[in-house]
Design a protein around this nucleic acid. Structure first.
Lengths: 224, 224
DNA sequence: TCAATTGTGTAATCGATGCTTACATTCACA
DNA sequence: TGTGAATGTAAGCATCGATTACACAATTGA
């Protein structure tokens, strides 16, 4: 609730509306949200280490101690950032999946992998924090772990459907899934960790190579 | 300066040899080496963030400013740690390769991947620092980049030999190599980043799964 | 032999950070 | 309308990386 939009029917003593525009109100309004946005930006700019509680407070125009009213620790703020990133990650993958053919599980699997890779390549720092346990305790975030598990289940089901349709020549789907995860995760992390020095973020060649690598993997497991 | 302990040439001044054993000499002896060892230990214990210049100095029994005589920055100390780790990494991989059959390139490729995975699984924090550009500037370490490039070249040559012998069904070796790197790197990083919560370090099941995943990949590219 | 040079350690200090405590202000509700 | 809860500020702590001035020691060369 913003301080200007309160009840106060009959009282002329300086309401927030009459406050001088340059003078900011004592209460921020939606500091929690603003802090998360600032933190998202900081992580985007400087990676996980770029997140500073004080800097986030600075950008929100608030005292250095204020964020601790909303987040008990830097790690908690990082967790909130990861939750927001995970939400976007999952949303984009599921959106991409709606455009995939419903009756071709292997093609859906490919769409899944491509959407995964594309988001990871375009949002490297955000992908990094939600993928590594170093930056926050995944067990303490129900949303991140749930979203992640559902994504894993989704690929598992898709693979099972592909197998049921006779699209796979391999039988151990569990290992196929782990290998597939390792492949896309490894590619995404190689990009993050600077193993592709010729590419910049959003480089089209990077995404083309990602696609080729994914297709190589799929060709290896597909029936032919 | 300490006024009481001036130079005073003609005096029963105690030379280093006659110094009491409990009293440590002013000069450490081999501080640089000891600092690297302490730093290796710190990284092994607490990951990359666990390295603190002060703590390394503390363990070396030296003042907080002393390490800066040997390393201009924390990053430089981390680079030295990474160089030592990279040296061990490469040595172990090359040692494993000597035990591989000389006339079977694909088997050698497999040995290469297995040695890579094994070392990464058993030395997760050390693998992490030498694999990510976050912790030090790879361009500033000739050793790390050279060792890494030679390892990459080694796998490239092995793949080329396998192809020449007709052991591969794929033609784009460049993409096979990138996919292979992504696979083992992704698996190693998944382990580091806590994606295999059931496993501990040195868990035999982890290495067995790593082997199975690698074999799945090789089966996908091998001629049959 | 011994004085100068160079190398290597200490002590003190700086600014930034995460985090805590005490206090101030405002909101929400009975 | 008044009171407790929520949310901000101010001040301060410990730790960290890093710098500077200074102390001590080993090496060198005339």
């Amino acid at each position: 609730m913003r301080p200007s939009a309160k009840r106060l029917p009959a009282k002329p003593r300086r309401p927030a509306a009459r406050r001088a525009p340059t003078q900011k109100p004592y209460h921020h309004g939606d500091l929690r949200r603003v802090l998360i946005d600032a933190a998202l930006q900081l992580v985007g700019e400087g990676g996980p280490d770029g997140l500073s509680v004080r800097e986030a407070a600075r950008r929100a125009g608030v005292s250095p101690g204020a964020p601790f009213r909303h987040f008990p620790s830097r790690e908690a703020l990082m967790t909130a950032v990861a939750e927001e990133a995970q939400r976007r990650f999952r949303a984009e993958i599921e959106a991409a999946l709606t455009e995939a053919p419903a009756d071709d599980p292997l093609a859906r699997f490919r769409h899944l992998g491509l959407a995964y890779l594309r988001w990871a390549m375009r949002n490297p720092t955000h992908f990094e924090i939600l993928s590594s346990r170093r930056f926050f305790d995944h067990d303490k975030s129900v949303q991140v772990s749930r979203d992640n598990n559902e994504l894993i289940d989704l690929t598992g089901r898709t693979l099972a459907e592909a197998f049921a349709k006779g699209q796979l020549r391999v039988t151990d789907l569990k290992q196929v899934q782990i290998a597939g995860r390792a492949l896309v995760y490894g590619f995404a992390r190689m990009n993050i960790d600077g193993h592709f020095p010729r590419w910049g973020v959003n480089d089209a060649e990077a995404e083309r190579t990602a696609e080729a690598v994914l297709d190589l993997f799929i060709a290896g497991i597909a029936q032919r």
